[in-house]
Structures are given as C-alpha cells and as structure tokens.
Design a protein around this nucleic acid. Structure first.
Lengths: 338, 338
DNA sequence: CTGTTAGCGCATTCAC
DNA sequence: GTGAATGCGCTAACAG
C-alpha cells in the first residue's frame, strides 16, 4: 500500500506538500498539485485511515443510530443516508438502539470512540429523553454534529429532517370526514413518543376544524405491535358507538387492523374504512389497495445525510430544519359510511 | 480520554506492562494485572482504536456487504449479525452492493482500507462471479476472513451459512403433489443466481420423485420485481394447460402473484394454490394466511457472525459450513385442485 | 508556497 | 516478569 512518502518521492516534493494537496489544495501550486495527483493515481495511493484518525484528521465515518433496521422506515432512511454519504466518500456505521434512550447514549459513546465525525439519529418510535438530549448537546459542544432524522423535535439547536406528519394526518382525517364519517378512531403510539404527537395533533385539529366532538375513547395509544393493536381494535369495536373509520399511525398498524378485521369478519371498506401513514410503498400494492399518505422515507435519509455533510463543511451554519412533503394517495380502503 | 500512559502512572508500572495486561494477560504478574485493571477502570480507560489500528492491532470492525438493506431478508440478517457482533465488542459497517459484483469488489477494497478485520457477504439475489471469487480468495490469502451468508456457494474454501433451500422446496412441492396438483409452476430468479438454483433443484427433484413430467414452460426465471412477475403470471395462465399451483421463490414473488390474482379475479386458493419461501414472518399474517417455508433469517445472521468470530480466534480452523433448518407452515393458500 | 519537525496512542522488540 | 525504545502514516505548526 502506497504512502504519502512514496507519492512525495514519485512527485519529487516534500511529504507535507502531498498532505496539503489532499487536504488544502489551495495551498499548493497548481502545477505541483497536478504532478502530485498524477503520482498518487499511478501508485494507487489510499490514505491510511488510522493514521489520519490518530493525527486528528477526518475519518469520513458517521454513526447511524436507529431503533431497528428491520423496520422498513429505518431501512429506507438508512439506504438514503448511505447513498448520499457514499457520494461524498463517507461511510455509515449503523447500530440498533431498540428504542432505548440509555442504549442510545451508550452507542453514542462507543461510536464516538471509534472516531465517527457525526451522527444521524432516528428516534422513530420513541421520544428523546432529557438525558439523551443532554448527551446530544454535549456531543455538539465537542464539535460532533448530530442530525435528527424523520422526527420533528422541538429543539432549535439541532439539525433535523422530518415530514409533514401533522398536515398529512389532518388531510387524511378531513378526507374521512368529507366522506361522511363522524366516529373516527385514532390508533397511534404512546403519546410520550413525540413522533406520534404530530399525528395526534393533526387528528384533533381536523375534528376541531370540522366541528366534530372529540371522543377520547376513540383515541388509542399503544405499542406498535400486532397483538396490542388487535386488542385495541377489539375494544374499539365493542363500544356502544363504534368507529366507522380508522386512522392508522403507520403501515404496521394498518396491517394489524386489516388482520383483525379479517379474523372478525369485518369487511374493509364496506364495514369500516381505513387510512394510514405509509413508509414502504404499501399503497402501491394491490391487495389491499390502501388509501393513505406516503412518506418519502428514502429522501428523508438523503436529506439527513446532506444536512450533516453541510454541517461538517460549515459548523457555524444556523440550525437547519427540513420538512419534506408527502403524497396523498386515494385508493380503495376508505368509502362513505353505511 | 485516559491513555495507557495514564493507567501506567496510576498503577505504577511501565506502559508496556499495561499493554500486555490487555492483550496478553498471561505475561503479567497476577497481582500487577489486578492493579492495572483497577487503575484502568478508575480512569475509565478506553483504548484509542486509531492507535490500535496504526500499530497493527485489532480493529473490532467487520464489513457487511449485502445487496440492499431495504430487503427484509438483508435487514434480518444484518440485525442478527449486529447483535452477535456487539456481544463480542465488534461493530459492523454495512454497505449496499445492489447485487453488482463489481461494486462488491470496490466496496471490499474500501472497507478493507478502513481496517475491517473481516467480511460477511450476502450475495442473496445474484451469483458470485469469477472475479468476485478471486477477490475473496485474495482477501482470505491476506488473512482477512470472509463468511458467505444465506447462500449455498459451492466452494470448500470459504466459510458459509445457508439454509436448506433445496429440501424446503422439495417439501413444499411434495405437499402440493400430495394435495393432487400435477401442473405446478415454479417462479424463481434467473438461473445464474445460484441462491435460486437450490430451489429449482428441489422443485425438479420433487417432480422426479413423484414421477411427474417436467413441463419447462412452467418454469419461470425472471427478475424479482412485481411487474415482471405479474407478466410471467400472465403468460403462465395463458397456457393451454395452465398451472393449478404456484411455487414462489420468496415473499416478494408471492405478493406479486397475489396481486396478479386479485387484479384478474382469480381466487387463492380456490382457483389456484400458492406456496412460498418466506423471510419476514409473513406466514404469521392473517391476510392472507400463506402456506410456506419460513427461513430463520435472523439466525442465519447470528451464525454468520459467529463463524467469523471463530475464524478470528482461530484462522486455521477447517472450513465451516452451516446449514440451518426451516419450518414448514401449513395454512390456507394451498388446497386440492378443482 | 514549500520543506522540516514533532507528536497522536499503541503494539512490539529488545534488553534487563 | 518488567521497562525503555522504536515506528506505524499522517496532520499541523513552524520556519524558511
């Protein structure tokens, strides 16, 4: 493996000049620069990342902390991040947090020690605790940028990329109301999970704007697990006035709802309507033809990476907040109530 | 951040002794060792990975090359790998190959340069070209172990973890035959893709053992993409003697088949039976209640990591080949033909 | 703009 | 068993 020394000899310059050529090319005479680059290419020079790291240079690594790569949302974000980073010569180290803030803090430290130059955090199904927030602030203070991805955190100090969850929910619920529904259930995650809060707000906002009463018993906040969702559905349908339509937090919830209906002999949409937030292009599937809002998850990932790269280049940039648009897809799972 | 030097001063020993304490503890006086470990703990000593790497030590990183983390198969393998590695203090760097052997070779080099001590390769939907094989052999020769995951490669020199795809396919097709089907279609991937070959063999083997004729027009080898699969289904159903049952390579194929049937008004299983290989516990879903073979994907990942760790500890181990069992789940999408 | 020099923290070799 | 010395390849500070 060729080193700077080899390149320097080949190009007939000092070693530091070669180093400059790669890191601060503007400090090098154009002609010399060209000679160095040519020599580097000939020798297939690849900098040794350990030496770079030791000497305090850049490591071109970023840490990606997400709850679980098996969730389509996380996988799509991860792929968007990876693609964008690779274009810039960076790589991502992915670690699963399982939604545990403490584990997240631990991983933050472990990856930091491994020299990642920044982090992208996908809180997704859980919130950001006070402690985690403190850890993040501390990192930022020591010049390690963090971007929060796919989550609208109420913090003006941290870069973030999210999507218009509140507006999307409002649009979906408005749609149901326009179809004639009045008893619309909201099935979301526990309300400590801020990612879900936007949706809850959107739901409430829609009811309010349409002068519909808020029936608290129609608001279900549970873990996003099929069994618990089915149990919640059971309770909803046992109400004296059961809902005629369901808003599902995401595709996992939507499928659990569908399964429940199948098992209980409820037809969708004839007996009950269903709309959902969707992360994995399920709305492109034919069985069933879901109505819902499609979130540009891959793009959320790409933009997150972009924000982080921007921050590397320019640490003094003002806080960057990006909120991506969604698309509303009208298909077959929602119709007027009987 | 505490260094060896700090620990040495705190424990009143030489720096090299501290180094030994961590790497070759048997070379250190028991009492001294204890003192050093105590000092390290007090100071919260964490070795600097760059320095370790530079000095030729271990880096505790492995590269994971998979086609696309968005495929559930890859995501589940990745999580299994990550969990196992983390237990051993290692981390994984995941990179997507998009199934391109050339890109895989490039990534192999890039990650190598970043100091990963080994690789886990998930060929999944594509084969291993001569060139890629050469790259792998070269890496192994330079003492960088590689494990092939979820793929049965016909190579006695490389560690691998796979599952009994041929047996599983045979069992599924046998099941269909026992139900009374004779015209059974096989929808798989292009036959250059060795991951699919085992299944094709299992299909043929079953027909052979049951004295059924092999109808080549019932064997479809296509890209695993919904549109192409639906097109293939169209051709199959247009045959003068169309199939009464379908074997689907995996869950992606199965869903495309279901979509096709839905669009064409074919009922499953009344009009046509369907069995599939499954990677994402779809067989736990209620809509539809798929019949098929469930592959322990997460476990494939864990075992892959384990093989690699074994190899680190003992480079001279004979080649390790692990083949994991599957489970056959009988549910609703296959019945006797009309 | 270019060349020289001094560490970064660790693993390892060689004396003791 | 232990301690001192060397170098891994690079970056950054400094002097020219």
């Amino acid at each position: 493996m060729a080193t700077i020394k080899d390149v320097a000899e080949r190009a007939q310059v000092a070693k530091s000049t070669v180093s400059y050529a790669f890191n601060k090319p503007h400090k090098v005479n154009a002609e010399t620069l060209e000679r160095i680059l040519a020599a580097a290419k000939e020798l297939n020079y690849q900098p040794n990342v350990f030496a770079q790291g030791l000497a305090g240079g850049k490591t071109q690594m970023v840490g990606l902390l997400a709850p679980d790569i098996r969730y389509p949302f996380n996988a799509n974000v991860a792929r968007g991040i990876e693609d964008k980073l690779r274009e810039a010569g960076y790589i991502a180290i992915t670690a699963s947090t399982d939604g545990d803030p403490d584990q997240t803090i631990t991983l933050l430290g472990q990856l930091r020690r491994r020299g990642v130059s920044g982090f992208i955090l996908v809180p997704s199904f859980y919130g950001i605790t006070r402690e985690l927030e403190r850890a993040m602030i501390a990192l930022r203070a020591s010049n390690v940028p963090i971007v929060i991805s796919g989550y609208h955190a109420d913090d003006e100090r941290i870069d973030q990329v999210s999507y218009r969850a509140q507006t999307g929910t409002r649009e979906l619920v408005n749609y149901l109301i326009k179809l004639g529904h009045r008893d619309i259930a909201y099935i979301g995650a526990r309300n400590t999970q801020a990612a879900a809060l936007d949706r809850l707000f959107g739901y409430q906002e829609s009811l309010f704007q349409n002068d519909l009463p808020l029936r608290p018993e129609l608001i279900v906040e549970t873990d996003v697990k099929p069994d618990q969702i089915k149990a919640a559905m059971g309770q909803l349908m046992a109400l004296s006035i059961p809902p005629t339509a369901i808003f599902a937090l995401n595709d996992v919830v939507a499928f659990a709802v569908l399964d429940f209906c199948q098992q209980k002999g409820l037809r969708v949409p004839e007996d009950i309507s269903l709309v959902t937030f969707d992360y994995q292009a399920l709305v492109q599937r034919e069985t069933p033809r879901l109505t819902g809002v499609v979130v540009p998850v891959y793009e959320v990932g790409r933009q997150s990476a972009e924000l982080l790269l921007n921050r590397f280049d320019n640490p003094d940039l003002p806080t960057q907040h990006v909120s991506l648009p969604y698309s509303f897809v009208e298909r077959d799972t929602a119709v007027a109530p009987k």
